[in-house]
């Protein structure tokens, strides 16, 4: 019975927010250990996968060599276009514009073992480092999620596949730049809704944030369209979207700090 009383005592202390320092000390000390363990597990998993997929990797390698050759051709064309673009800009007297001028904070991913749907992750930076609720979490040009909770040393991030995630998006591969709202589903994929029947959405299209919600900056990749539910009887279309990045394998991310 005394153990139960001790638990109640700790619960009371927690209710009164007196366990903060204890949490801070443990998280500060154990975050690097958790990080090391997760990285080791990821490395081991990669090694096992590499051995089991050796034949597929060989085929993939051959395909990649071919793709690399094509990309080199495409890059050469792009270089020519860049040169041409530069000359045109000089001719028109245009200034370089940058839409992204926020400060970025590099964070390590700790995962979240208790969330079986993997719709949330912990990161090893908290309000001590300037992270605040609502901050965007990105990797390269891809949106990864949004900070939901922050403690001194750690933060909880809702991934783009989380049911709590929602953002206004647009399909950049269509001429009309089809707009919609993207929401996470079961920690697995996303759904782009509110697409009119007349608007075009195709499988393989890339969907990016439109910035119209005022929460996310525009132009960050959310995912690729994998299927479109296009029933003529329904007034709106729904597109299923998969993230461009394997969210379970990411190790380092960037938090876009609020100004």
């Amino acid at each position: 019975m005394k153990y139960l009383l001790l638990c109640i005592l700790f619960l009371l202390l927690s209710f009164l927010k007196l366990t903060g320092p204890l949490r801070m000390v443990f998280q500060k000390g154990l975050n690097p250990v958790q990080l090391g363990l997760r990285d080791t597990a990821l490395d081991l998993k990669d090694a096992f996968k590499f051995i089991s997929d050796l034949k597929d990797i060989r085929d993939e390698n051959i395909a990649l060599i071919e793709e690399k050759r094509k990309l080199e051709d495409a890059m050469l064309n792009l270089k020519n276009y860049a040169l041409e673009n530069e000359v045109l800009k000089q001719q028109l007297g245009m200034k370089e514009s940058t839409s992204f001028d926020r400060e970025l904070l590099m964070v390590n991913v700790l995962g979240n073992a208790e969330d079986l749907s993997y719709s949330t992750i912990y990161i090893d930076r908290g309000f001590k480092h300037g992270v605040s609720v609502g901050d965007m979490v990105i990797l390269g040009n891809s949106l990864i999620g949004k900070v939901r909770e922050v403690t001194y040393e750690k933060s909880l991030v809702d991934l783009i596949t989380s049911p709590n995630f929602s953002a206004t998006v647009m399909d950049i591969d269509t001429a009309s730049k089809t707009q919609g709202v993207c929401a996470g589903k079961y920690g697995l994929y996303m759904e782009m809704t509110r697409i009119l029947q007349v608007d075009e959405v195709n499988v393989g299209d890339t969907v990016v944030t439109s910035g119209k919600d005022g929460v996310f900056l525009s132009g960050f990749a959310v995912g690729k369209v994998v299927s479109v539910s296009d029933l003529p009887t329904e007034p709106l279309k729904v597109a299923q979207i998969e993230p461009l990045i394997d969210l379970k394998a990411v190790r380092k991310l960037f938090v876009v700090l609020s100004k």
Partner: peptide, 24 residues
Amino acid sequence: ALVGGLLADVLGMGLVGVSSFVVT
């Protein structure tokens, strides 16, 4: 149950003592 529960809660975001209370 007590010690492990406290550790589990301290490393998460919830109330400290919930896991200990439930397991105890």
